[in-house]
Design a protein around this nucleic acid. Sequence first.
DNA 1: CTAATAATCCAACGTTCAATGGAATATAAG
DNA 2: CTTATATTCCATTGAACGTTGGATTATTAG
Lengths: 223, 223
Amino acid sequence: MKNSGRQVKDLLYAQVARIGKAVCSPKRLELIDLLCQGEKPVERLAAEAQISLKLASAHLKELRLAHLVEARKEGKHVYYRLTGNAVADFWVAIRSLAEDRLLDLQAALDKLTEHPSQLQPLSGKELLARARNGEVMVLDVRPTSEYAAGHLPYAQSMPLDELKKRLAELPRDKPIVAYCRGPFCLMAVEAAELLNQKGFQAIRFEEGVAEWRAHGLPVEVEQ
Amino acid sequence: MKNSGRQVKDLLYAQVARIGKAVCSPKRLELIDLLCQGEKPVERLAAEAQISLKLASAHLKELRLAHLVEARKEGKHVYYRLTGNAVADFWVAIRSLAEDRLLDLQAALDKLTEHPSQLQPLSGKELLARARNGEVMVLDVRPTSEYAAGHLPYAQSMPLDELKKRLAELPRDKPIVAYCRGPFCLMAVEAAELLNQKGFQAIRFEEGVAEWRAHGLPVEVEQ
DNA sequence: CTAATAATCCAACGTTCAATGGAATATAAG
DNA sequence: CTTATATTCCATTGAACGTTGGATTATTAG
């Protein structure tokens, strides 16, 4: 009886550890972060995480085994997606815990934002209110496919690599708030730096769609 | 520039993976679960997780390296505790994700509660309201030290191994709700079974203090 | 000071895992 | 049918990890 209790417990904790094993590899975490932006084929995931296709496939298999992601086949391509928003919420949770607990991570994150582009940090609710009133322009600098899969309310899509050519579309009389995939993504930092150089008032918003949604704020999806 | 971005990203994801590495071992998860019940010396942690002292020490070192736990020395004993409630919340989060995603875990948990003791599941808010009105008696069957470190409001302490001798203290005219360390702990299940055999109306409440607190409900601590 | 206890450190063994190259499968295009 | 592309499977290698036993440190009791 007492021994069977041990067996049951070992089994229960081992099951939870399956999730832990899935998220103990930096590359797998990066893949989850990428998949928070919407479903993507293996090739694109490998390219964005800068790993070989084979390695990406192997990591995705591990994630699939833990039921954190699932696959859909369309023609020659296999599209992966998270098995639900709970996975994205979990990614936000573990990253937040790491930010709280690990000083090294705090330091590394601070270095990203030590540039002059940073004005004052803005909360999600504040941003939503100002965007609704038209006081600020919200700019989504991710690839268009990710914008389509879900974006912040009132946000306009302008991928980072098109930004230089489309400066004429941007307002000079109000602040531009650029966001991308989240705290670990550098695109919005680059965008804000570029815009500030060109004379715009631009700030980077740290949160991405996953953080936004995890905080209970609404997300728009293209039909 | 592009390459330095890769270096920064690798560093950031690697930091989060340190948390992942800390929670990819079943035994470390069990230690965290135990520490959710309050600080404990290494010896007790090893005994409760049924592992050797050395192994417990090694695992605790890993957890300390990830800054999930911290140690306090008192005489010959070293007491470990979580570095904050955020760690307990994270434990609740990863366990919930595992319950959602892994069918094996659901099945194992269902087996725990398939016994006749289970009446209807009760939400935390409901339980709190009924306990306040005195409609039910809430029984904390964990060791007294854990009760002292934090317990549900209106709960009375009666450790599982004292239960048989103290039946006279329990009411026969209203339901008894027994709880313990949480969903993976068997003490409340055993307690409810025993009480039902003895003619009491007892049910098991699945949540422990960590789950209760994570849901934003109040916890009482002995001064 | 000596003995006993609690905990950690260190070395070693076997296992598991990340990563890579080559082969195999599946689908679309010619 | 053949070729090219996308992906997965399989085998291999080197590194990291869990676990155990022996030695070591720190603290209390006698």
